Structures are given as structure tokens and as C-alpha cells.
Amino acid sequence: MSKELFIRTSLQREWLEKLLKYEKDFKEDSQENDKQSSFPKKNVNKLVEMGYTKLTLPVEYGGEGIRVTDMVLLQETIASLDSVTGLAIGWHQGVVGELYEKKLWEKEKLKSFAQEVLNGALVNRAVSEAQTGSPTRGGRPGTNAVKKGSKWVISGQKNFTTMSPVLTHFLVSAWVEEKQGIGFFLIPRDSKGLSIKETWDVIAMRGSESHDLVLDHVEVAEENFVELNHGPRGDKINGWILHIPACYLGIAQSARDYALKFAVEHSPNSISGSISQLPNVQSLLGRIDLELMKARHFLYSVAEAYDDAERRSHITNELAAAKHIVTNSAITIVDLSMRLVGAKSLQMSNPLQRYYRDVRAGLHNPPMDDMTISKLAQTAIKEAENK
């Protein structure tokens, strides 16, 4: 199905055209990177060279100041070309977008880091830990920050550090005892005591190299103590997190396109014409496009509501619901695509088996399905009680 309905601006069309010029390049190493659990460095380097990674910087800081809706459209497109590239660069885009929209840091720090981004810096938050589980559930970090002299000394270990091979900066959460809160520290990659422990061994998003980040008494300057939170960050509305469902929507689109191409080209000698004329195949294709349509319209509707300041104030659980709907629809779309293609979809050389594995990773990106459903119920109950 066409995305023309969702292209609203010349900037969107310009960047879609730029990205699609590299469709072949982005796709060509996907299978090998998956097989070797190797990060798509060439793809990410190309995005940096193109200026893609500075799009979410506001215009006053030298960027393009794109909106969440723009990001969703572009991230979906990248993920349809290569899922790992889409998920990885999405974290950078989302972090930068949130930082500058919400002005989470001091003005001078935002200004200096913007220059780093303009020069090619890549950043991601490092928050997950083995003992705390998902940070959105409110666990206190085991990573600690202690003030010694004029610097903070940080020790701990983070897992699921997506894009670890190419990150230039890590935005690390740590418990700050003397502040009785969770602090975030901007730590450059070349900091003494910082290392990457290669622990990534999963069946989904294998090439993301989401290894462990190890911090062994890393000294951080006071100016890099950039945020302090006394409550869960997940309670704050952040539309930039929609890069997550955008990624899985892109994977679903790829699975659908493969299945459709297979249907119109596959012509066994048991029938006249291609299998696309068979009622059961058309039923699968129709269900696939219905799921895709439902997911895309909901995601873009929520993104557009977030970009509208007046409508944003009415958002409650729509961001989480968008992630829930899109990721689960994406799983359904890939499953239906594999049913259509049949046993060939299980061959290691077939991209559908990779989409099948990668798309399930969405279930484990925040927010989790059970939390979304629970919050929907709690909000409904609260509204009823307040009437």
C-alpha cells in the first residue's frame, strides 16, 4: 500500500527520495549482518554523511527541526530497507528530538552538544540493567554516581546498549545517593574506564550489537551531569518514542511487499496463472493490507496529534497504544506473509524468516503490552470516578 497519503511536506518528500536512493546499498548486507551479528556501520555512516542524524535538532541549533510525524515517516522507510539500521538510528533521533523539544539540559549544554551532533556525534540512553528489568517499570539503577572532588565517579553495567559499536556518547542513568534521585550523565566514548562487553546473543535484531556498557569508576565532569529525575521518566509524554513502532511498521511493510511479489510471480503448474488469483491467497493479502492500514493510520494520527500543541494536551495513553497496536499488527502481518509464501519463508536465505525474528523484538521495547493495557484501564476507571 502506498504512503503517498501520509506525505504532507516538501521536506518529507525530499528526504524520502534521498533515502530511497540507497535502497540497494542498505539492503545488500542485511542477510550477512544478521548471520554474523554484525552492526550495519556502512548504513549508519551514510546517514551521518547525508545529514540525517541532525534532522531532529531545532533550526536554531543548526538542524532541520523536524516534527515527530516527519521522523515516523522517515524511520519507517529506513526500517523497511534494513530493520537494524532503522531501530539503531531511531534511538539517536528520538533522544536528540526529546532533549531539544523539552529542553532537558541547561542552555549552554544543549548548545555545545548540538555542535557535536552537527559534527557527526551519535547518542543513545543507557538505562537497562539485568537486575532492574525495563526502566519503565520504575526500578532503581544499580549503577551509582558518587561525587569525588569536582567530578562524579560512575560504576555499573548497562545492557541492551543498541548501536554500541558506533555511539560517540552514552547518556547513562545512575542512582545519585546524595540527590536521592536518578541522574543522567553524558559520557563520551573515549572516557577512561568505559568499555563495551560483547554480550549480544539473541535471535532478533542480531546486527544491532546491543552489547553491555561497562563503567568502571568513570570520571565525569560536573557539566556532564545533565539530568536529575525524582520519578520515572516514563510518566512524561514523549512523542519521540514513536520511532519504535515506526521501525516495526517498516518491517511489516517489507514482509507484505515480499509476500505480494511472491503471490503475483509464483505460478505452479497445478494452476493457470499465479497464486495471486486464488481466493485463499487473496484473503491473506487482504488481511495483511487491512492490518497494515489500521496500524499506519493509528500511528500517524497519534504522531500528528502530538505535533499539534493544542491537541497534545489531550493525549493520555495514545503513544503507548500506538506502540502496542503497531508492534502486534506487525507480528500478525509477518505471520500472514509467511503463511502465504509457505515453507520457503523458513529458508535461511529468505528475508521473511529474518523479519519474523526481528519483528518480535518490538514486544520487548518500552512500553510493554501489559503496562499499556493496565494504564488504559486505570485511566478509564479514574475518568469514571471523577464524573
Rank of each mutant, 00 (worst) to 15 (best):
H211Y: 14
N350S: 12
L55C: 06
T69H: 04
H211L: 12
Y355R: 13
S301G: 15
D308Q: 10
F113S: 06
I7S: 06
T56I: 08
G250Y: 04
E222W: 04
G239A: 10
I275Y: 06
I288P: 06
L167Q: 11
E198K: 15
S254D: 03
T85Q: 03
G193Y: 06
V117N: 04
V123K: 02
P188V: 07
R357A: 11
V176M: 07
Y61Q: 02
S155W: 00
W15Q: 06
A380I: 00
E177P: 09
R67K: 09
A255H: 01
D82C: 07
S134D: 12
V281N: 07
L319T: 11
F225R: 08
T132A: 07
I325H: 14
I315G: 03
V44H: 00
R13A: 13
G181H: 05
E227F: 06
I244H: 04
M71L: 12
S80I: 00
E49A: 11
Q277C: 05
V59W: 10
M368K: 02
D369Y: 04
T9C: 08
L260W: 05
E318H: 08
E23H: 15
G342D: 12
Y100E: 07
N43D: 12
S2F: 03
L285Y: 06
I381M: 11
D201M: 09
G97T: 10
E106I: 10
E222Y: 09
E209N: 15
A130K: 15
S2G: 15
K107V: 06
E116L: 09
A322P: 13
E98V: 02
R287S: 14
T69E: 00
L81V: 02
M205Q: 14
D25Q: 08
C247R: 01
V72H: 13
N45Y: 11
E385K: 01
V127L: 12
Q282T: 06
K3F: 10
H92V: 04
M338N: 03
L352D: 02
V341E: 00
S38A: 07
S164M: 03
I78K: 05
G273S: 11
K197M: 14
N119V: 11
V214R: 01
F185N: 04
S349Q: 12
E304V: 07
N229D: 10
S10K: 15
R13D: 13
E49Q: 10
Q36N: 08
V127S: 14
Q282H: 14
A384G: 03
L16K: 11
Q31R: 15
P188K: 00
K35R: 15
A322F: 03
K103F: 05
N386R: 00
S337V: 10
N365C: 13
L249K: 11
F298H: 15
V172H: 02
G286H: 08
G120S: 10
S191W: 09
K103E: 13
G362E: 02
F160A: 08
H230G: 06
L352V: 01
V172S: 09
H230C: 00
K236T: 09
L55E: 01
E76C: 09
